[in-house]
């Protein structure tokens, strides 16, 4: 079954807003795409259209939070994290303000617009900020969990969202926890540690490896920061190597976070991700995933090299 992550996000944001009057939304002229439009429609007095000005949007969100509001500020991931980086650092993270930043259309998912609208750097830039929680959900179920969890955390949160219809991997019983790895498939020889959209593809890669007689464990990391290092070490215990899988540059994102977390007791690693490049336009999302080497075949090949 496929569910669109933006749709799931909008539904949960609205449900949250109905329960919690402190929740407000801001957008930089993309509310139809990011789905913050659900707040504009249902709670117009709690929606702030900031126009095409992401820096002011983040400062305004910080100001709103100073009175106890819980602002969710939206734009495409590339703009939400990139344009106002200084505002996020100085006016949100440093003072530990309760601002939620939602980066929509992340990675390659805005396939048509191409490089300027595709974001491969946001996990890295958001992750380096002390106090920032970074979520990168894999499906609609986890997206809804991330919305709830973001509101429950008293402090800055970045949620990275894909814009496409994606397979549903989880259900309401899945024990999501901030910072904890989730073993989604058991396996003994190699661990595929994935985040966001790449978790579903890593599952397919594990199936492919199985046909070749290789047992792969699939571990989903829906939180890039904070990361429970001990839990991650435990999750990869016993395998001979790790392949990290992310729709993001291999510099500074999931692969780096895993390498940093395990550097005291390292395992051989390979990183599947964007290889220090910018994106480009294409007629469909899958075409880009193939072009940039984010397929089950790429992951399986990387795993085989480790064995």
């Amino acid at each position: 079954m496929l569910i669109n992550l933006r749709t799931a996000y909008g539904e949960e944001l609205l449900a949250l807003a109905k329960e919690n009057s402190r929740v407000v939304a801001l957008d930089a002229d993309l509310c139809g795409s990011t789905q913050s439009v659900v707040i504009e429609k249902n709670f117009p007095e709690r929606y702030f259209e900031m126009g095409i000005g992401e820096q002011n949007m983040i400062s305004v969100a910080a100001g709103l939070s100073l009175t106890g509001k819980i602002p969710f500020a939206h734009s495409f991931a590339v703009f939400a994290s990139g344009r106002p980086f200084d505002q996020i650092r100085q006016s949100v993270c440093l003072p530990k303000l309760n601002v939620k930043i939602v980066g929509s259309s992340c990675g390659l998912s805005d396939f048509g617009d191409g490089a300027t609208h595709q974001s491969f750097e946001d996990l890295a830039t958001m992750r380096v900020l002390p106090g920032m929680t970074v979520f990168c959900p894999a499906d609609a179920v986890e997206t809804k969990w991330a919305v709830r969890q973001a509101a429950a955390i008293d402090g800055p949160v970045y949620i990275r969202l894909n814009r496409n219809d994606l397979p549903v991997l989880f259900d309401e019983k899945t024990p999501f926890e901030t910072g904890k790895p989730l073993v989604v498939k058991e396996g003994s020889q190699v661990a595929l540690v994935a985040t966001g959209t790449m978790t579903a593809i890593a599952m397919e890669a594990a199936g492919l490896l199985e046909t070749k007689g290789i047992s792969a464990r699939v571990i989903h990391l829906g939180t890039i920061k904070p990361l429970d290092t001990a839990a991650l070490a435990k999750a990869v215990n016993g395998v001979r190597g790790i392949v990290t899988c992310e729709e993001h540059t291999i510099y500074g994102g999931l692969g780096s976070a895993v390498a940093e977390a395990l550097c005291a007791a390292p395992l051989p690693m390979r990183m599947v991700g964007i290889q220090d490049r910018y994106g480009q336009s294409a007629v469909c999302y899958d075409e880009l995933l193939v072009h940039y080497g984010l397929t089950k075949e790429n992951i399986a090949a990387a795993a085989e090299k480790l064995l």
Partner: peptide
């Protein structure tokens, strides 16, 4: 009442405060 230091951000913070307090 508000963080300060990176120039150019104070008025945005003040906007947020004013929007939050106007009700």
């Amino acid at each position: 009442d508000a963080p300060g230091g990176s120039l150019g951000q104070g008025l945005g913070l003040a906007n947020g405060l004013a929007l939050a307090l106007r009700d």
